[in-house]
Structures are given as C-alpha cells and as structure tokens.
Design a protein around this nucleic acid. Structure first.
Lengths: 154, 154
DNA sequence: TTGGCTGCAAATCTTTTGCAGTTCG
DNA sequence: CGAACTGCAAAAGATTTGCAGCCAA
C-alpha cells in the first residue's frame, strides 16, 4: 500500500474523531467525500470534488459536498484558497506541509512552495498585534518563465 | 485642501492617462466611480462602491461599477482581495504603501499591516521560480485579543 | 426512536452579458 | 460620424436553504 494512503487513513480518522467530538454524524457520503478530498492531494474546487465523489457514489449531491467542505473548514482540516477564476478552491490543512501559491496571470499555472522564513515572519507579526494565528494564505501573482518568453517574442 | 485629496487627484490622473494610452474612454461615470474608489481609502466591495457612487450620480448602474473595477484591476490600479464572506473586496494599489491583512475569525476585525521583510522574502521566492511578480495578497486568519479574552471567559 | 443528514429543487447572491440607446473623441 | 460606453434586465455561476424522506447513534 502506498504511503499516501496511510496518510489519508490517518487524517480521515482524525477528522472522524473530531466530528464525533462535536456531535457530528459520520455518514457514508461524508466518508466518500473526505476520502476523495484527501486523496486528491492537490487543491480542488467543490465541483471537482463532486465529480470525483460521484464516481464512487453517483447519488451524492452538490449540496452535500458544499456542506461537507464547510464542515471541514470549520473543523480546521480544510482551507479555502483563491486561485483566480470564479469558484473557490479547497485544500487539506493536514497530511502535508503547509504551502503557498505562485500563480501565472497569463497561463494560470500554479506553483506550490513552502518557505520557513515567511512562516516565521508571519508569526512574529501576528504576535505583535496580539492575534492567535489559525491559518493564512499567501498568493503571489506574476508571469511564469514560459509566458515571459512568449510575451517577449510577440 | 486635505493631503488625501491631492493623492486622489494624482492617482486619478494617472488612471486617466493609462486609460487614454490604452484607447479606453473616460466617461463621467468612470470619473465618479474611480474618485469614490480612491477616496474610500479602505478596501470595499463592488456593492459598497455602487452605493457611494449612486450618492454622487444615482443613475449609475451596478454593471458599470463591475466593469470599471475590472478595468482598474487590469490596468493594475486596483487589487482584488478576499476577506472572507461571499463577495470580493477591492483596494487601490497606488496612493498608499502596500499592505496585507490580519483577520479575526470571530468578529471579522481586519487589521492592515506592512512588513518589509515579508515583501523581500517573496521577491526572493519569485525569482527562484523564475517568475516576474506583479502583485500578491497575504491574508492571515486568527483570533484578535478581544475575542481571545471573550472566548476564554465563556 | 429521533434528530441530524441527504438529495432535490428552488432560492440567493454575486458577477457577467446582450441589447438598444447615448456619448466621447 | 462611429466605436466604445451605459443602464437595464436577463443570464450565468456558485453556494445556500427548505423540505420530505432516510439513517446513524
């Protein structure tokens, strides 16, 4: 069994426990949706998650996906990110290191990166203002190398 | 005349010139909308901007506000930010130093801050990936001092 | 058993778009 | 004059909500 799956199982258990602690029921639909969400690894939209979930259980409706995603955000397992475009994307908070995004304005390419220095700096700023930090999101927009080249050639 | 107004006039002229350079027309509605946008200083939603603009010229429609905001973003004078909630907020890129946001999850308080160190680090990361940076947004979510106290007391 | 959850469809909300008339350049 | 712009209303898209039936605890 690949390592990735073990992580999925671990996180899923954590989610289920957290749900139970809050008196939230664990249904087969939530099982499927959370599993697909964690397996995806990549950030994905509610609609993309709906498609993947329907592949496992075609009866699952969009409303349930939205309700589950909101639940995950509330519990602190998922995070909303904005990568441009019309709809919000979500990604797991646990199971992999936190990362931020570098987005190409021309072709939409999304590069994920991690940076210890930025995280530290953020904590310092939060402390300065007396905040207790839960999470953050950093999105940097610009032109990727290929698009720079392409645009320069035109 | 207050200093703030001079800045508004300066930026507005820059916007108008940039518009002209692109062959974009300068109408009375755009004049009003851009003026209100710059005067607000604070980040504001399309709807808030519509309300303010209607106070000056009640005939202005929502579509024009959206079209103008998109134009400003395209020109690089405005930036979309997401402060939670359903609708996007916008804020001027010029006329004041760049800043990021610290947002309280409990009461919605938004603290704006600037940090040289983070900006530098971001540029370094962009360069590492070969990106040319246009802009970025950093939003940190947590609990403000008051809400920490309030929640602890409960 | 029973209150929370589900799917469906309808309702909301935000943002975009088509169109006929208006206006800037 | 002619292309770009405007307001309106309709459309489009994303997300939420009401409701009747279903199911985990």
């Amino acid at each position: 069994m690949p390592v990735a799956n073990e992580i999925v199982v671990q996180v899923q258990e954590r989610v289920r426990d957290e749900a139970k602690r809050r008196g939230v029921r664990w249904t087969s639909q939530r099982q499927v949706i959370v599993e697909q969400f964690l397996l995806a690894g990549e950030h994905l939209t509610a609609d993309e998650l709906l498609v993947r979930s329907k592949e496992v259980d075609p009866a699952i409706g969009a409303a349930t996906v939205y309700r589950t995603l909101n639940l995950l955000v509330e519990i602190g397992v998922a995070q909303r990110v904005r990568l441009g475009g019309g709809s919000a994307s979500f990604e797991p908070v646990l199971g992999r290191a936190h990362h931020d995004h570098l987005i190409c304005l021309a072709c939409g390419l999304v590069v994920e990166f991690e940076d210890e220095g930025i995280e530290k700096r953020q904590n310092a700023i939060a402390k300065k203002h007396g905040f207790v930090l839960r999470h953050h999101r950093l999105e940097m927009f610009g032109l990727c190398p290929k698009c720079q080249e392409r645009l320069a050639a035109e």
